[in-house]
Design a protein around this nucleic acid. Structure first.
Length: 958
DNA sequence: AACCAGACTTAGAAGCTTACTA
DNA sequence: TAGTAAGCTTCTAAGTCTGGTT
């Protein structure tokens, strides 16, 4: 099976050494290369296969549909709609899911070509499928890939029939797949586990949403765009009127790109939409490849595969070049190098000695450091020479601890008999044993991947014997690790203390580096230990064994003239280089997906901070042109060219809904999408829904297989365009078949320097925060209430960005506890009120001095109680609202920290209420520079100057 | 010019520590 | 004081996007 192929271990094993070696990746490049090649080959194969698989994608594990609808822009309107809708929809979706499921299943059954993997997946899915949403009939044949249809013969009848029908179109579409070619994956990916979780999340969120809707401000705030967008409908146009040129035949269309901008094309190409669709539409894919390729395409996808194969050598070469160099081979361009070298030493000598020299060794330093004055790099002038450092020194990464064998009394049983395992086999058994309580081990894909990788580590004897995972009894091993955990938890104070100290010592040794004379914390200095791959969602590679990384796998990056880290005794690094155009200190290639993993600085470092700052400045620059961009894409809705319309609509989504760009994905990853990779099956169109016109329901799995569900009313023109884009496509086809992220970003970059799709997320998130804060903050409220207001503003952003989390396991319980407290407190308040009244009476009606005093006292007590009650209620509200929403992600990645800092300053809220210690250090630059009147939508700052303009000054706070 | 690997950001879950409660 | 919940940190997967190679 494919998985096996992926794992590069030569069959059996004399792998006496470390795992590292066993995978054949560890020793150096050639093996590595091989691995990659392998991967490619494999992919090609798979692609073929995949073409026939069903897609079944909707994994639908979904969660709340509503959450999103309440979001941001659309929010107020949507809010009105209320729970009813939500409920209904939910019901619907449940039903739908059922339906869908059976459809899928049918389809699936037909599909003989599916790999075992897929089958597993299907099963898996089926189990949970109940929840899946309905699909329209069309959806049944969701073989998504456009390309897939090519192989009709093999294909299931439904798609086959369609094919005939749509032959021409199909062709077109087929070729259009460019991006979509990948999608062929039809992975039926199932997310059972996720589903379960998501299901419950859905519910929660639904509830929550209701709340939020009520609470989160009435006023729109949110989307800047909303009004504008809606207003602009042009009166006259009927659908007809929007003619467009759908196709730009390959040959005719040489220039394409340049034209893009100039939009509004030549008249000659016009035709009524529908027709054009059928005939002329030449998808992106076509345009990109030669005629010849196109022809080949007719029968199958060759071009894609071919193309890929051809590329392999590239990789190899590149690597080779690097390796051919001496240790410092990858060094930068001449100029840079010179510069760097000049600068290097001075800072190093000076600062390093003073600040850090001794540090690495003693734990006590840590405290010292904290006292150390912060390096206010943001006050320095940034040189834009493209170099990330001039001097870099560190200790190298910390390798994972060697495997320790289990005590001899902890046995593994196979088929009821105890069995002695070799080191590697036992270690892997331990990986699995530790997870047997986890949901992962209920998944067939996980199990079969594990089994197949595990067997590769076994000795021939073991391999012969151990053939069935079900016969493996890991319980003792599991118990052993559980016990170890217990012991860890129950350690005495002294033990804890000692442990803490060793940890600190390790951090002191490995956790810091010297960069340009400054000591900076490293983010992840530990090499990832071996274990089982835990892909999110229905990842086809889940359960595979992550091999142990050895020094021989690791590339070190540091200054030539620094103290080069020493490899562990008896080992050597794969390579030591001095590349100061990058920020990483070490890297290695991981064996599951052949991706590079890096050791980098932590978020509080200059390198990261500066980049972060820059990110927000870019977002602020977007503010200056966003109106124009919006205007433009709205005009583009009417373009004659399909590709421009698609681009416009996609951009509209990215702007309005904060969708991610949506790069293409390989088929050996979980099936998730973003804007550009949306497929027909991911949205449903309703001319009318719940009293709203032109409603689009988005339902797909996004990053990390988190469900995105949102019902949005869109402009009529968008709606009509969507109908057009969906026309004659199968559920699995790309919605935007002439668009991909490169095209989109290229376009954006032309609109504004540095503009890409993700800038919109940052921009809209930050803007939303600022607007919500303005709206929600009541300056007379006590700090605690203001904090709640802040959290709500933050929550609006999290909603916008669809940042979810699993509801805490103990949520209900702790909520109940809190509620009880509230009730009790309320009783106290009531009682106090009563007493107070009485005392008041007594005091008034000619009461004695004493009585008056008693009354005053009681009154005060009552106030205190009321305050406490209010506090409790606020925290309950906050808690409830946060149940399934993760605020951290947006706070850390999307919200210009200066907005928060300014808000704190303006309303006298201690910054600690908003940022914890780590966050404060990450945002130190913002805390330091932002004043109370900072305005995100103000004039952007110019962070850096390029070499030639040596002008000073950089911060021009609006 | 297409394409992909490399570099870096963004993400939720798991693990660990601290704070709070009974 | 133990038990639990909340909060924070660590971990590493999964995105985006660019620049170098072909």
């Amino acid at each position: 099976m494919s998985e096996m192929e992926d794992f590069n271990v030569p069959g059996d094993g004399g792998e006496a050494i470390s795992n590292g070696m066993t995978n054949g990746i560890s020793n150096g490049t050639s093996e590595h290369r091989e691995h990659k090649e392998h991967k490619h080959r494999h992919k090609d194969k798979e692609r073929d296969k995949d073409r026939h698989r069903d897609k079944d994608r909707h994994k639908s594990s979904h969660k709340d549909k509503d959450r999103h609808s309440s979001s941001h822009k659309s929010s107020h309107k949507d809010k009105e709609q209320g729970d009813k809708d939500r409920h209904k929809d939910k019901e619907r979706s449940d039903k739908d899911k059922h339906r869908e499921r059976s459809d899928r299943d049918k389809h699936r059954d037909k599909d003989k070509e599916r790999s075992d993997k897929d089958k597993h997946r299907d099963k898996d899915k089926d189990r949970h499928r109940d929840k899946d949403k309905e699909r329209s009939d069309k959806d049944k044949s969701r073989d998504k890939d456009k390309d897939r249809h090519r192989d009709d013969k093999r294909h299931s009848s439904s798609s086959g029939e369609k094919k005939d029908r749509d032959k021409d179109r199909d062709k077109d579409r087929r070729s259009s797949s460019h991006k979509s070619s990948h999608r062929d994956k039809d992975k039926d990916r199932h997310r059972d586990r996720d589903k379960d979780k998501e299901r419950s999340r859905d519910k929660d969120r639904e509830r929550e949403k209701v709340k939020l809707e009520v609470k989160v401000e009435p006023e729109p705030v949110l989307q800047p765009m909303e009004e504008e967008m809606i207003v602009k409908e042009e009166p006259v146009e009927s659908e007809e009127e929007d003619k467009l040129v759908i196709s730009e035949p390959v040959k005719e269309e040489p220039v394409e790109e340049e034209e893009e901008e100039e939009e509004v094309p030549v008249v000659s190409k016009e035709e009524p939409l529908e027709e054009e669709m059928e005939e002329d539409d030449v998808p992106l894919f076509n345009r990109m490849y030669t005629k010849q390729e196109e022809e080949e395409d007719e029968d199958d996808d060759k071009p894609l595969a071919v193309r890929r194969k051809v590329k392999e050598p590239k990789e190899k070469k590149r690597k080779k070049m690097k390796e051919d160099d001496d240790d410092y081979g990858d060094f930068k361009p001449e100029k840079k190098r010179i510069k760097k070298e000049k600068k290097e030493k001075k800072p190093k000598a000076v600062k390093f000695t003073s600040a850090h020299r001794a540090e690495p060794i003693s734990p006590s330093k840590k405290t010292k450091k904290e006292e150390e004055p912060v390096w206010k790099w943001w006050e320095e002038t940034k040189r834009d020479d493209g170099l990330k450092w001039h001097f870099l020194e560190h200790k190298g990464p910390m390798m994972a601890e060697n495997y320790k064998r289990l005590p001899s009394n902890v046995k593994f049983y196979y088929n009821g008999e105890t069995m002695e395992l070799s080191d590697l086999t036992e270690e892997a058994a331990g990986f699995y044993a530790r997870m047997i309580e986890h949901d992962y081990t209920t998944k067939p894909v996980f199990n079969s991947n594990f089994m197949s990788d595990w067997r590769k580590l076994m000795t021939p004897k073991e391999k012969e014997k151990i053939t069935d995972l079900k016969k493996c009894d890991f319980r003792r091993i599991h118990a052993f690790y559980v016990q170890q955990n217990e012991e860890r938890k129950n350690r005495s104070k002294d033990e804890r203390k000692a442990l803490k100290e060793t940890n600190e010592a390790l951090i002191a040794e490995y956790g810091w580096c010297n960069i340009d004379g400054h000591k900076q914390r490293i983010g992840n200095f530990k090499i990832e230990p071996p274990g089982l791959f835990r892909g999110r969602g229905e990842h086809p590679k889940q359960g595979m064994i992550k091999k142990r990384i050895m020094p021989e796998d690791v590339i070190i990056n540091c200054s030539k003239d620094s103290a080069v880290p020493k490899p562990p005794a008896g080992h050597r690094w794969k390579e030591v280089r001095a590349d100061n155009t990058v920020t990483w200190l070490a890297c290695w290639t991981e064996n599951i997906q052949s991706q590079t993993k890096y050791v980098m600085l932590n978020a509080a470092s200059k390198l990261k901070g500066e980049k972060d700052w820059q990110k927000y400045e870019t977002a602020r620059r977007l503010h200056k042109v966003v109106d124009r961009i919006r205007e433009q894409y709205r005009l583009d809705f009417k373009s004659k060219e399909m590709r421009i319309r698609q681009r416009a609509v996609a951009l509209y989504f990215i702007d309005k809904l904060a969708l991610r760009a949506g790069n293409e994905k390989d088929e050996d990853q979980a099936d998730t999408v973003g804007c550009c990779s949306l497929r027909v099956e991911h949205l449903q169109l309703y001319e009318q829904k719940n009293g709203k016109e032109y409603v689009v329901i988005f339902d797909f799995l996004g990053k990390d297989s988190i469900r995105y569900y949102n019902e949005v009313a869109v402009e009529k023109r968008v709606f009509k365009n969507l109908q057009l884009f969906k026309e004659n496509k199968e559920p699995g086809n790309d919605l935007f078949d002439r668009l991909n992220t490169q095209i989109l970003n290229k376009h954006l970059n032309e609109l504004m320097d540095g503009l890409t799709a993700k800038v919109f997320r940052t921009y809209n998130a930050s803007r939303t925060l600022q607007e919500q804060l303005e709206l929600l903050t009541n300056s007379d409220d006590p700090v605690i209430a203001k904090v709640l207001q802040y959290n709500r503003a933050n929550r609006a952003v999290a909603l916008l960005c669809n940042h979810q989390r699993a509801a805490p396991k103990t949520f209900d319980k702790s909520m109940a506890t809190l509620q009880k407290k509230i009730d009790d407190k309320r009783d106290l308040v009531e009682e106090a009120e009563r007493e107070c009244k009485q005392l008041k009476k007594a005091a008034k009606s000619g009461g004695s001095q004493k009585e008056k005093i008693a009354y005053e006292k009681k009154k005060k007590a009552l106030d205190r109680l009321r305050e406490q009650l209010e506090k409790l209620e606020l925290s309950a509200t906050d808690k409830e609202e946060n149940k399934t929403i993760a605020l951290g992600t947006s706070k850390l990645n999307y919200l210009d920290p200066r907005i928060s800092v300014a808000w704190c300053k303006r309303y006298d809220v201690p910054i600690e209420k908003v940022y914890n210690k780590t966050q404060r250090s990450k945002f130190q630059w913002a805390i330091d520079m932002a004043t109370a009147d900072y305005n995100f939508m103000g004039e952007p700052m110019n962070i850096s100057r390029s070499n030639d303009d040596d002008g000073e000054e950089e911060e021009e706070e609006e």
